[in-house]
Simulated assay, not measured.
Amino acid sequence: MDRIYLDNNATTQVDPRVVNKVVEAMSRDYGNPSSPHALGRSAAAILDSGREIISSMINCEPEEIFFFSGGTEANNSAVRGAAECEHSVRKAVIFSAVEHPCVKGVYFKYLKSHGYPGGPVSCDANGVVSLDSFIAAIQKHQDESGPGIALVSLMHANNETGVIQPIEETGRICAEQNITFHSDGVQSFGKIPVDVKRMNLGMFGASSHKIHGPKGAGFLYIRKGTHFSPTFFGGHQQGGVRVGTEAVPALAGFFEACRIASQEMTGEAERVGLLRNRFEEIVTDKLPESRINGGAVSRVPGTTNMTFPGVAARELIPMLDEMGVTASAGSACANSRLQKNTASPVLAAMGLSDSDSLSSVRFSFGRFNTIVEAEIAAGIVVRAVELLK
C-alpha cells in the first residue's frame, strides 16, 4: 500500500506544475534581480509578476508585498519590526495564547527580556480567542499611565486545530484604537479567502510550502504607512525591508503555487473539507470516546485534531507511520515536545488536561489526498488506537 500522507499542515507535496516553474527559473532566469542586464531584468520581472499575483489574492497593492524565506522569518520580522521601530519607548506586544512559536517566541525569547510589556490573551474551549480579553489588554496598555501598544497579533487559522480566529472583529478593534494589527496567515493563505483591507491588517505573513510550493519562500504584507524596523541590514533590496538577494527559483515556484491556489481554492477547499469530514465521521463512529478539538467552530478545510483518551500520541504516531499513515502532534517542534512528555500549549490554552493533550494527534489533508485514502486512513487509525488501549 502506498503511504497516506496526512501531515499537510507541516509541509505539502510540491505540485508538479510548481516544479516546472522552479526548474525553469533555475536554468533560464538565473540572473541577480538587482543586476541591470537582461538576465537580471528577467529575474526582476518574475518578482514583479509575483507581487501582482499575491496582491490580487489578498486585496492590497503590489508594492506592499515583501519576500522572505518563509512564514517564520516573515512573522518574526513583523513582530520585531513593529516593536523596535520606536527606540525611545518600549510599547506592549499583545497576542493570543494559541499563537505559533514564530510569533509568541519572539516575545518570550527576545522582547520580554528586553523590557517590552504585553503577553498573551486567553481563548475559549474551542480555541477561539476572547475579544473581551483583547479589549481588556488593550485598555490596560493604552491608558494614560501605560506605555501604549506596538502591535496586536492574532493568527488567522491555528496550525494544530485549524480553528479560524475572529480576524475581522479584532481588526476593527485595532483600527478604532489606531493599533497595528498583524496576522500569521501561514495556515490560511491559499486555503480560504483573505482580504487585508476588510480585516484591517497592517501586516500579514504567509509561506510557500504550505500550499504545495517549495520551501524557502514566503511573504510579508506591510500596509503603506505602517511603522516597521527591519531586522537585517546590508544591501538595498526590497527598499531595505528585507535585504539580500531574492531566492528567485523558490519564489517563482511560490508564485505558481499562488496562481494555482487562486484559481482552484473554492473547489479544493470543498473537496478537502469533505475528506476531513469523512475521516472524522468514520473515526468517531468506531471510537465514540474520541474527541475533535475545535470541532464545534469554523476550521480550515483540511485540519482535524483528535484526542484518543488513554492512548499516548508518542506511541500512536510511530505505529501509524509503520502502518502507512503519516500524521503528527502539531507544529514541527511537537515531536521533541512529545518525547519530553510536555503538553501542547495550544491544547492547554483550550483547557485540555496534560493527559488529553498528550493523547492528541493532528491529521491534515491536502490537494493530493483522495476519499479512498481518507477512508483507509480512518480504518488504520481505529485499528492502531484499539491496539494501544
Results as ranks from 00 to 15, higher is better:
residue 311 V to I: 03
residue 26 M to D: 15
residue 348 A to Y: 03
residue 379 G to A: 01
residue 310 G to Y: 04
residue 238 Q to N: 13
residue 65 I to L: 00
residue 75 N to Q: 12
residue 362 R to F: 09
residue 26 M to K: 15
residue 153 S to A: 15
residue 139 Q to W: 05
residue 113 S to L: 06
residue 180 T to N: 05
residue 189 F to G: 01
residue 38 A to P: 12
residue 389 K to A: 05
residue 57 M to T: 08
residue 76 N to Q: 08
residue 221 Y to D: 01
residue 127 G to L: 12
residue 320 L to A: 07
residue 143 D to E: 00
residue 13 Q to N: 13
residue 251 L to H: 13
residue 142 Q to P: 02
residue 318 P to H: 13
residue 217 A to M: 06
residue 229 S to H: 15
residue 346 V to H: 03
residue 162 G to I: 05
residue 238 Q to R: 15
residue 215 K to M: 11
residue 170 T to M: 12
residue 303 T to F: 11
residue 59 N to W: 11
residue 246 E to V: 14
residue 281 E to T: 06
residue 195 D to F: 10
residue 104 K to R: 10
residue 218 G to Q: 02
residue 389 K to L: 12
residue 183 S to Q: 08
residue 221 Y to M: 05
residue 272 V to K: 09
residue 89 V to L: 08
residue 185 G to R: 06
residue 172 R to G: 06
residue 225 G to Q: 03
residue 291 R to M: 05
residue 340 K to C: 12
residue 252 A to M: 15
residue 378 A to K: 00
residue 56 S to M: 11
residue 223 R to W: 08
residue 60 C to A: 02
residue 214 P to M: 13
residue 182 H to P: 03
residue 304 T to L: 01
residue 131 L to Y: 14
residue 31 G to D: 08
residue 135 I to E: 14
residue 373 E to A: 08
residue 52 E to R: 14
residue 382 V to S: 10
residue 47 L to A: 04
residue 276 R to K: 07
residue 23 V to G: 14
residue 128 V to Y: 05
residue 320 L to Q: 01
residue 151 L to Y: 08
residue 378 A to T: 05
residue 164 I to T: 05
residue 68 F to T: 14
residue 386 E to L: 11
residue 210 K to R: 14
residue 342 T to Q: 05
residue 181 F to D: 10
residue 345 P to K: 11
residue 86 E to M: 11
residue 370 T to M: 02
residue 378 A to V: 09
residue 341 N to H: 04
residue 249 P to N: 15
residue 222 I to H: 07
residue 76 N to S: 05
residue 24 E to Q: 15
residue 56 S to E: 14
residue 145 S to R: 10
residue 292 I to T: 06
residue 334 A to T: 11
residue 14 V to Q: 14
residue 53 I to G: 00
residue 351 G to Q: 08
residue 96 S to K: 01
residue 358 L to H: 03
residue 311 V to G: 04
residue 8 N to Q: 11
residue 287 L to Q: 07
residue 230 P to R: 14
residue 79 V to E: 07
residue 54 I to G: 07
residue 172 R to N: 09
residue 346 V to Y: 01
residue 259 R to N: 03
residue 272 V to A: 04
residue 272 V to M: 06
residue 187 Q to T: 10
residue 112 K to S: 04
residue 208 S to H: 01
residue 23 V to E: 15
residue 139 Q to I: 00
residue 276 R to V: 01
residue 342 T to A: 01
residue 200 N to S: 10
